[in-house]
Design a protein around this nucleic acid. Sequence first.
DNA 1: GTCTATACAAGGATAGAC
DNA 2: GTCTATCCTTGTATAGAC
Lengths: 215, 215
Amino acid sequence: MTTERRTAILEAAARVIARHGVRGLRVADVAAEAGVSTALVYYHFKDRSGILRHALAFIGDRADRYTAVEDDAAGGPPADPRQLLERTMLLEFQDLPEVRENSTAWGELRAHTVFDPELREELAAAGAAWAAEVAGLLGGLRPGAPAADLTAAAERLTALLEGLSMRWLSGLLPLWHARELVREAIGVEIGRLDRAAGSPAESPARPAPALPFLN
Amino acid sequence: MTTERRTAILEAAARVIARHGVRGLRVADVAAEAGVSTALVYYHFKDRSGILRHALAFIGDRADRYTAVEDDAAGGPPADPRQLLERTMLLEFQDLPEVRENSTAWGELRAHTVFDPELREELAAAGAAWAAEVAGLLGGLRPGAPAADLTAAAERLTALLEGLSMRWLSGLLPLWHARELVREAIGVEIGRLDRAAGSPAESPARPAPALPFLN
DNA sequence: GTCTATACAAGGATAGAC
DNA sequence: GTCTATCCTTGTATAGAC
């Protein structure tokens, strides 16, 4: 089956990206990793950026299928909303090859987009979906909270997660510490939602900045 | 003066890094940007990684000297602690060439360290200093708070900042929104410090995870 | 110190046989 | 579909004149 070969190449590409980054990807490396010739890689994916596009899509798909292996994994009962949120956000922080691979690749993708806007759309969509999911989970937890507050909290949490992920992958932050900070951050944001329940929005009509470079 | 030429080349390198990233840096580009020959660049910096090392050090030095241009910049009086913290954290979020350049280069450095540990030490030191500074400012704001809480809050805030910075630089997040999220995050963390004042630590003795990949 | 010219290596991509 | 062999561009680095 031809599809299997394609998949094998994409898996190889994912491993190569995890090791050397998007910009460190060499077509010859991918071929070697997959145990095929470079020519075959070109045959299936046209050119280097074709490989990249398909590999990133492949990685994106795979990310949805993480096995939710967690602290209380051993077939625990469907957790309460808070635990569900924690689990979801902590999925990225597991030292398993597949997870590391995906996480690394996504980090690379984000970093790469700073210089090459080509993939911006795709990233924006994925990011928005991810933020919406977190906002939804937060909403399930504090049904009374205004949508704007939920959205802002989700944006902060997901951005934090990206920052922590990079630190972990760089070896600057031990995994358990990253996980702890994520859990605490969730607690902090939930606390904020509770306090904000009574008081009006903290940042009402934002005055337009007078200085253009702050826009 | 020879030093001027060296500096000119480093400035050129900083601009090139801001445009194409660490891994996108071409020696010929640096030379062209500085208006000199490639041979001269090699003469002054030995090889490509020499250029890189010096350029990153140069950028790091420069980051300390940001002019604190802010909303209330026009010669306002020495602000209160809260404003001081906000200003410090928002320094990275200004659409000025120098700031963008530094921010981009640091982001690249962080991303690059995922694959190349060579610069990890330097990054770790800079990150620790930065976190300590933020923790200090938070401490000035809430003198009663336990040091551990201040540290954790600072870690979350700085990691958030890195995540938001990348989103801004990628064009995924408008500058004003990034700034707003930073300000809110500061508020949220301060709120947490206030609430935590009475109650005991939220995450006491953390049980060692049973599963190795969560460590 | 600075340049021009060039050697040399790596990597992307294709031709053509099987 | 898959391979071997090869081309060609790009990028690092050096030689040698001024």
